[in-house]
């Protein structure tokens, strides 16, 4: 079966002279109706990967290598105009800050109607109808009245739901959700994730869920891709990667989560800190923090496959013991 999205060796750079590689050699595939969890630490390149797919990179940033095959077309080669036609229609993005989607000086209704009519030549009334339905769908009470409200009249959680409703307006094939619940409360977070789960399942939408929270990903995603310093270090199904991590970094991340540790004992921790992207050690980027490192690691390991999963390490760890 051909994948809805297949990213091959994506590389994205910032800075004209420096060639700052924020994303390097990233490859993954995603099928319709599946959820991919993209996890990694701050600055590891998760958002930049998302922006690269969306064609929304900030000015100095550009895709310098690789292909982004979406339903057979390479998004990296499309013009801005062609990309704009896809965006919002077949691919949509939900940001961590809903105000990146919402304009504070327009009512929610105006913005949603515009969003509908940007891709479908329908009358205002039809567009309003659809907007209202979309708001109802994400669990906003009395959507009719809410359409005439301004974004600031909503709470943070409701704003994020509006942003999700907008992303869902055209039943896109792919949604990229960039930490959409990180800024929200636990209870509101589960409300939103549960809406999202329902909606994505119903319309067979593929989702890339970007987060640093392994717990969310474990319950939400089918597949998982772990990034470190701009590269994918491990991919596979949630069960494989979280249940039996092969890369030392993935393993370290899982084991440092408090609920994976015994109370009263120190948390198992990854030593050191993430190096800045322009200060990576030569060879395996994780080398400075890795307990397993040997001289062999002075070369960059390739992504090695093992069945349906893959990892980037010369000395993969055996089955987790805890």
């Amino acid at each position: 079966m051909s994948a809805l999205l297949e990213v091959r060796n994506l590389a994205t750079e910032f800075g004209a002279k420096l060639g700052l590689r924020a994303v390097n050699d990233v490859s993954f595939r995603l099928e319709r109706g599946k959820v991919l969890g993209l996890v990694g630490e701050s600055g590891s390149g998760k958002s930049v990967t998302g922006f690269s797919i969306m064609g929304l990179l900030d000015r100095p940033g550009r895709v310098v290598d690789g292909q982004i095959l979406f339903d057979g077309t390479d998004l990296a080669t499309l013009s801005d105009a062609e990309m704009r036609r896809l965006r919002g229609k077949r691919i949509a993005m939900v940001f961590q800050d809903p105000m990146m989607t919402l304009n504070p000086v327009l009512t929610v209704g105006t913005q949603m109607i515009e969003a509908v009519r940007a891709h479908d030549p329908v009358s205002k009334d039809v567009a309003r109808q659809r907007s209202r339905d979309a708001l109802g769908l994400v669990g906003i009470p009395s959507p009719d009245e809410r359409l005439s409200a301004y974004p600031h009249e909503f709470s943070g959680g409701m704003r994020q739901r509006v942003a999700i409703a907008i992303a869902l307006l055209h039943h896109p094939d792919l949604i990229i959700a960039d930490e959409p619940t990180t800024a929200l409360d636990v209870t509101i977070q589960s409300q939103i994730i549960s809406e999202f789960q329902k909606l994505a399942e119903q319309s067979n939408t593929a989702v890339i869920w970007i987060t640093h929270d392994l717990a969310i990903v474990s319950r939400l995603a089918d597949d998982i891709a772990v990034m470190y310093a701009g590269r994918l270090v491990e991919t596979g199904s949630v069960e494989e990667v979280l249940g039996d991590p092969r890369h030392p970094y993935t393993r370290g991340l899982i084991m440092s989560v408090p609920s994976q540790n015994h109370r009263g004992e120190p948390l198992r921790q990854i030593p050191g800190m993430t190096p800045a992207i322009n200060r990576l050690p030569p060879g395996c980027s994780f080398r400075t923090r890795c307990e397993q490192a040997t001289d062999a690691c002075a070369a960059m390991p390739d992504l090695m496959s093992e069945g349906s999963r893959a990892f980037r390490c010369f000395h993969p760890v055996a089955r987790i013991d805890a």
Partner: peptide, 12 residues
């Protein structure tokens, strides 16, 4: 938040 290996519905 706990790591679980099976997909589960979020309740709210």
């Amino acid at each position: 938040p706990r790591i679980e290996l099976t997909k589960r519905r979020f309740k709210a």
